[in-house]
Design a protein around this nucleic acid. Structure first.
Lengths: 138, 138
DNA sequence: ATGTATGCAAACGATTTGCAGGCGA
DNA sequence: TCGCCTGCAAATCGTTTGCATACAT
C-alpha cells in the first residue's frame, strides 16, 4: 500500500500540497521544519502556501505517514514515517536520521516500570542521538 | 547537597525568581509550562515577571535542577529533576509524573543499534506515557 | 564595588484562524 | 455537485531581546 492509498483510506484527500510535502520529505536527508519544507516545496509548486504545509503535515501525521522529531531545543521538524512502530536515531552533526524497530526491546523495561509504579504504560517516546558512521571520522 | 548549593556551584546566583520557580515546581503535581509557573509564582512574589521565569528555567535547566518534558504536541513544560540520569513516566490523564532510572536498561538496545547502524550513540530521550494507578480505576 | 539578574516593553518568530474561492472524489 | 482543501491576510501565542535599575556576592 503506497502512501496515497494510506492517506486516502484514513479519510483524507490526495491534494497537490500533500503530494509536494511528501515529495520533499522523501528527498530530504534530515528532518525538516515546516518553513524548510515550504521553501523546498515552493520550488516544485509555486503557489504552495506555508499554511498548507502546516495543514498537510497535520493530516499526514494523523495518517501515520510522517513523524515529528523531538530535540532538546526545537521539536518542530518532520521525517517520513515507516509503517509500524519505530524509533529514531539522529546524527547530531549532519542530522541524518535512521529508524529502528520497535517495541520489543522495551518490553521488559516497561514491565518492570509498570510493576514498580503501578502505572499502565500505553505509549513511549524514544529517540537516540549520536554520530553516524561518516561523521565519526571527521 | 541542596539545590541552592548545586545552583551556586554551577556558577549561578541564588535569586528570588529562581527560588520561586523551584518552590512552585516542588509543589506541582504535574509538569508546568512557563506561563503556569508564572501564574503560581506571581502569587508568592507579586513582582515576578514572566521573562524571569523563562530565564530562571534556562539557568535551572543548565544546572540540572529542572527538566523539560516532551509531549506529542507541546514540549514546553518542566518538572524537577533528580540528580543523575532518569527517564520520565507521565500519566496521560492527571499529568502525574514519575521518574525512573537509568541508562542500564537501554544499554543492550543501544549496543545492538550501534552495531546495526554504525552510529555511536551518545544520548537518548525516553519518556513513557500511560495511566497511573489511581487513574486506572476511573 | 562589580557584574549578574530583574522587570518592563517591544520585537520576534512560529503557528493558528477566518474567509472566499478552488478542486478532489 | 458537495464539501473538503487551499491560499491569503491577520490574529494569536510563546519566547527572546534591549535597556535601565536592583540586587547577590
Amino acid at each position: 500500500m503506497d502512501w496515497e492509498e494510506q492517506l486516502s483510506q484514513a479519510g483524507w484527500r490526495i491534494t497537490t500540497p500533500r503530494r509536494v510535502v511528501m515529495q520533499v520529505l522523501e528527498q530530504a536527508a534530515r528532518p525538516l521544519s515546516p518553513q524548510e519544507i515550504h521553501a523546498r516545496g515552493h520550488r516544485l509548486h509555486r503557489s504552495l502556501g506555508l499554511v498548507s504545509v502546516y495543514r498537510a503535515l497535520a493530516a499526514l501525521e494523523r495518517a501515520g505517514l510522517v513523524r515529528r522529531v523531538h530535540r532538546e531545543d526545537r521539536c518542530n521538524s518532520y521525517v517520513l514515517a515507516s509503517p509500524g512502530h519505530h524509533h529514531l536515531l539522529l546524527c547530531r552533526r549532519c542530522g541524518r536520521t535512521v529508524e529502528f524497530p520497535g517495541t520489543e526491546d522495551l518490553s521488559s523495561l516497561i514491565a518492570q516500570v509498570e510493576q514498580q509504579t503501578g502505572f499502565r504504560v500505553e505509549d513511549h517516546l524514544l529517540q537516540l542521538v549520536g554520530l553516524c558512521a561518516p561523521c565519526r571520522n571527521l
